[in-house]
Design a protein around this nucleic acid. Sequence first.
DNA 1: CTTCAATAGGGTAATTGGGGGA
DNA 2: AGTGTCCCAATTACCCTATTGA
Lengths: 65, 65
Amino acid sequence: MSVAEELLTPGEVARMFRVDPKTVRKWGQLGRLTSVRTPGGHHRYRENEVRALLDHGRTTVNNPS
Amino acid sequence: MSVAEELLTPGEVARMFRVDPKTVRKWGQLGRLTSVRTPGGHHRYRENEVRALLDHGRTTVNNPS
DNA sequence: CTTCAATAGGGTAATTGGGGGA
DNA sequence: AGTGTCCCAATTACCCTATTGA
């Protein structure tokens, strides 16, 4: 179902990854993030992709005593 | 329900534990820290995890000094 | 229409990742 | 077993100004 997907601003993505907005833009240029361009040239990123990326690197390992 | 979690850079964690960033990365490899990876390959660590680990080392029953 | 915050763009410094060895 | 330091290359952070977005 293609409902309107939530688009995130560079600042939002940068806050989620704890990086600089400039770094987020480079990820889009490198093809690691799908960047949606506004008519003015600003970038928007898909929330689903960002969340998938965050979950991908997550090592949910329980530490047994 | 994923609210924006606070992520810390390796340098931040290293400063809190008074160790080298390299050591922090090893903790992530050993599964003792939840490591979130940026698309660029850098690691980010959960502030809650770090705090829990810091508190965990405070198993002092009654000996603050 | 105006105002203000955020963003794009390039360039340079600092940090980080990885292996190997002490 | 665990940590600190060496090398390298890659990634990221902060400086600036002009433009876009709401």
